[in-house]
Design a protein around this nucleic acid. Structure first.
Lengths: 180, 180
DNA sequence: TAGATTGTTAATCGATTAACAATC
DNA sequence: TAGATTGTTAATCGATTAACAATC
């Protein structure tokens, strides 16, 4: 058993917040005693859709793309990297540590049955927007953009129903004004 | 000149929001005509501290670290990658496309004069928390964590004054519950 | 003057926090 | 019963949106 107080202390939020959030799952706790951990975990897994690995496609088989897609450390923890895509036929067709490297033209067909949960963009900046549009059209559920360019809200396909994480760009906003 | 209406249309927000936000800079606009672009830009640059490049240090000179730190595309756009750090003496001492590869023990001393704006963690997961603590102690202003591990709010040094971007982990939260 | 657009005040909305009756 | 802790309702807070007088 665990109390909302304990969960809050561990997570760095208030017990009120924990109870409020958990109440969305229904009445999971027992008054006077707290929450049964196994039952709570099962309910969270079911609610958040963590019962399966999130599928990942990496587009851009350059150094960054291969580093993210190809190495074991970055293939752990709830994510299943399914394929690496590139536009250059010289790079495609083979595989990298068991990860197939496919031509970017095959992305849509590969997505037809089951869209990717996460599309990672590791192309040069001038190709990023085009790739993002392609992913949106193919039903990719989230886009993580590592190309040093802001995709923003313009483009052929409006980015809706898809969260675009503008990596470095967004980070800059977190910084306080320069003291220099 | 540009109006709040036009800025809002481009940025995808309402004109009210634009005016509200810009009012923090003081009275920059002219009623009836809008905002003078050069004056507005200057005020934004001054306020957001964009007058200089944000300095970046990458810790972990593995494939990912070298891809992010060493290649031109990822060194553009307002960021100046200053150094790559690693714990393995066999990897340190040299340079990668002009970027010095230094031993991680030198990080604190290198930060003493001018702390890094952004510290990028590209180590294996079991070293990430230790590196984050080191960065916080050294005054690093923001941390971008690429190690597939959640740094969270625990650790030797509480993470204060520093935004930790939990890469893949945070992204998962953006996804809606699985439909599978 | 008349049309346009700002800057600010008021209203709305949602999320967080506080409080507490319910109840284990 | 008495202490503990939930689940929910009310209060607070901040941010977004609406409205409009000021004024270019």
């Amino acid at each position: 058993m665990i109390s909302s107080e304990t969960i809050g202390a561990v997570a760095g939020v208030t017990s009120d917040q924990v109870r409020k959030d958990l109440s969305h799952l229904g009445s999971m706790g027992k008054r006077g005693t707290g929450y049964a951990v196994p039952r709570l975990r099962d309910a969270l897994v079911a609610s958040l859709g963590l019962g399966r690995l999130l599928t990942v496609a990496v587009v851009g088989a350059g150094n960054l793309g291969m580093a993210i897609g190809g190495f074991p450390d970055y293939r752990a923890g709830g994510f299943a990297v399914k394929a690496l895509y590139d536009v250059n036929p010289n790079r495609t067709g083979g595989s990298l540590s068991g990860l197939p490297i496919r031509h970017v033209d095959e992305f849509a067909a590969d997505s037809a049955q089951a869209p990717y949960d996460i599309g990672v963009i590791t192309t040069p900046p001038d190709a990023a927007r085009e790739v993002a549009d392609m992913m949106v059209k193919a039903g990719t559920r989230a886009i993580l953009n590592f190309a040093p360019v802001t995709l923003g809200c313009q483009g052929e396909v409006p980015v809706r129903n898809v969260r675009v994480v503008e990596e470095m760009q967004i980070l800059a906003h977190y910084l306080e004004p320069s003291d220099a």
